[in-house]
């Protein structure tokens, strides 16, 4: 059986608690939004934890920052994971903080050797501290980034040197391919697919110029569905798929419908697996 998850957002909490949709096997929780919270939202989260399996998806570790790893932040995340019995912790292969400034954006990294060296060091420290492998997500880059190698080679070397896992965001690969005139399927095939822990899919916004922004405010595009359809058999094993949605909510049902679409898509391969 394949498994499907949904990114937890406050707007869908009431329906997640009231309704039962067997297709939702797990819920992806952003620890930063829920750590050290009491009162109403703590009560909601505790109830959700009774009903769904949680995975943690961080947004502010900034593993790609030149700053030292923030162990206080990691400790809070570790405590949160322990409290809710969370086994998996994913983050983004990006940077978002610089010295005393937090930009709250997933900013891209240069695909260079010295960046890898620094990342490998920080990933090892984070993994040792958390006592589990990090699961790192590929992000979008809108302008070109400095590169001595391809994104896939960059990620592959990090995986090989740290043993970290990959959260492969199909939508992000599609966006990067579109915005930089690359072949999305080829980009995906070059990724270290053997290290993929789970997949992200989401909607995106197409600007008038044809440029695409990773907005998460729309339904999954047909192109991303098609890409998933092409890469899933190449991965050649069952990997969980998570749907992200950050805006333009119209209740839980449309998201559940999208999860069923994903299920239908991958079921053909599950049957043959």
């Amino acid at each position: 059986m394949n498994s499907f998850g949904l990114g937890l957002r406050k707007k869908i909490v009431p329906e997640l608690l009231e309704e039962t949709h067997p297709i939702i096997d797990f819920v992806e929780v952003v620890p930063e939004n829920w750590m050290n919270v009491g009162g109403y939202w703590k009560k909601q989260l505790d109830q959700l934890a009774q009903k769904y399996r949680f995975v943690a998806h961080g947004i502010s570790l900034s593993i790609g920052s030149h700053n030292a790893l923030n162990l206080k932040k990691l400790q809070r995340i570790k405590d949160f994971m322990m409290r809710y019995n969370i086994q998996e912790y994913s983050e983004h292969l990006c940077f978002s903080e610089y010295d005393n400034v937090h930009l709250f954006e997933l900013l891209p990294l240069p695909f260079t050797k010295d960046a890898i060296n620094l990342l490998v060091n920080k990933i090892h420290k984070a993994q040792d501290f958390l006592e589990r492998p990090l699961i790192l997500e590929n992000v979008c880059y809108y302008s070109s980034v400095e590169k001595e190698m391809s994104e896939a080679d960059f990620i592959r070397e990090i995986v090989q040197r740290t043993g970290c896992k990959i959260l492969l965001d199909i939508n992000n690969v599609y966006i990067n391919a579109n915005n930089h005139n690359l072949d999305a399927l080829e980009l995906l095939k070059q990724m270290p697919l053997e290290a993929v822990e789970y997949l992200h899919v989401a909607g995106h916004q197409i600007l008038e110029t044809g440029f695409i922004i990773d907005s998460h405010k729309q339904a999954i595009s047909p192109q991303v569905f098609q890409l998933l359809d092409q890469i899933y058999p190449v991965i050649n094993r069952q990997v969980p798929i998570l749907l992200e949605r950050d805006g333009n909510f119209n209740g839980l049902q449309p998201l559940v419908n999208e999860l069923h679409q994903l299920e239908n898509l991958v079921q053909q391969y599950s049957i043959n697996a």
């Binding site: 790609g64 920052s65 030149h66 940077f95 610089y98 400034v101 930009l103 954006e105 900013l107 891209p108 990294l109 240069p110 260079t112 050797k113 010295d114 960046a115 620094l118 990342l119 302008s143 070109s144 980034v145 400095e146 001595e148």
Partner: peptide, 27 residues
């Protein structure tokens, strides 16, 4: 390029925080 990560971080910081240095990007 021993400091490519810090250089890249700095470029993005200046762009995002102050709106400076957009010309250093390809577009």
């Amino acid at each position: 390029m021993p400091n490519s990560l810090k250089n890249s971080n700095t470029r993005f910081l200046n762009l995002c925080k102050f709106g400076k240095g957009a010309a250093q990007f390809d577009n």
